[in-house]
Design a protein around this nucleic acid. Sequence first.
DNA 1: GCCGTTATTGCACCAAAGTGCAATGCACCA
DNA 2: TGGTGCATTGCACTTTGGTGCAATAACGGC
Lengths: 211, 211
Amino acid sequence: MPTDEPIVYVVDDDVSIRDSLSLLLQSAAYDVQTFASAKEFLDAVTDLQRPACLISDVKMPGISGLDLQDELEAAACPLPMIFITGHGDIPMSVKAIKKGAVEFLPKPFDDGTLLAAVKEALTKGEQNLTRHNEKSHIRQRLDTLTPREREILTYLIAGLLNKQIAYELDIAERTVKAHRKQVMVKMGVDSIAELVRLTEKAGIKPAGTSP
Amino acid sequence: MPTDEPIVYVVDDDVSIRDSLSLLLQSAAYDVQTFASAKEFLDAVTDLQRPACLISDVKMPGISGLDLQDELEAAACPLPMIFITGHGDIPMSVKAIKKGAVEFLPKPFDDGTLLAAVKEALTKGEQNLTRHNEKSHIRQRLDTLTPREREILTYLIAGLLNKQIAYELDIAERTVKAHRKQVMVKMGVDSIAELVRLTEKAGIKPAGTSP
DNA sequence: GCCGTTATTGCACCAAAGTGCAATGCACCA
DNA sequence: TGGTGCATTGCACTTTGGTGCAATAACGGC
């Protein structure tokens, strides 16, 4: 499934820009899909599993490119963006890049520059996708844990002994072992080392971390 | 020691800029040190343990601000930078921010904007410093490991059993235990969970990771 | 050739982790 | 009211991990 062909989305209210970009990108063997507005794009794009990036004009009627960036961020949709603009300024570019945009290109730009940016964005996009999928897969498994198991988990990754966990929770060591077993099974790991690595990726904090 | 007062370095070839910035920053209760060139700055600043940030002009005779950024990066010196410029353009700002600069301010800018940037930079600087110190402390401990211990370490954080490690390295289980003990002692941890967390921070990869 | 470091291993024993089997109590739902 | 999921625990037993004590061996340096 990671062999999906990447796609480049183009959002610009100027049809001539859309067409020329489309042509350029297709000549570079990329799949392309164009939209006349941010809204149109947001309504149409649902397949978040395909490697992709987004080229957007900054200034557009309705939702601007920068707003679109915010929307995507709010939707936890990590789609690498390339901005193009006719009348952008430095503060605008700084803001966009600081929020994670890959490039901010003032028009006119040359083809090579854009293609380089697209390449970079797609690379980043695949990494994002991989990381995102990994994370959601982990969270999915975390959700199968019962509250108690979830609690035990935080003690496990803190490195406590069964005996210590039992004391902390005021339960029998045998009970801890039972939960512990379930945690390992449900999370699909067979060592504490793996468990720690998984939970780190998911942002789970070990018990007793700065209360 | 984290109670050190932060300092703001200013590098600009224009003395009037230096003076006005100095005044502004001092009025905001920051320690300030100014330099007329990047070279002067690089020669003078040695205390990397103090929370700090750097405000630099982009265009200067000799080493430019962007070059200075490269120099600092090469020296693994994570000093958050704020660029100010009279004639900067968008590609320049994009490049600077992508390389980690905190702000890129075209002149003229208002005092509030600069002070906000300084505040942000100093916050980032402290985080950098903390992370950097933590990392170097870990590496320091890693360096006390013998080659064999270092090797065992990678198997430990991969979650292998003593028995398995012994088989992999074709040595006795008792030997693995001996090394294992040394690793734990030297790294100053008493659980595999902690060991995994430490090595993650230091970028150590577990054995058997995509060879 | 002696010494320190590193790597190695055996034996015995205790502590901790993991397992199989089984049972109890509680809350919630149909 | 019986079924289901969750939390709990005991007992007995095996597997791993960890330790103390001790010894051997290779290597490099002085």
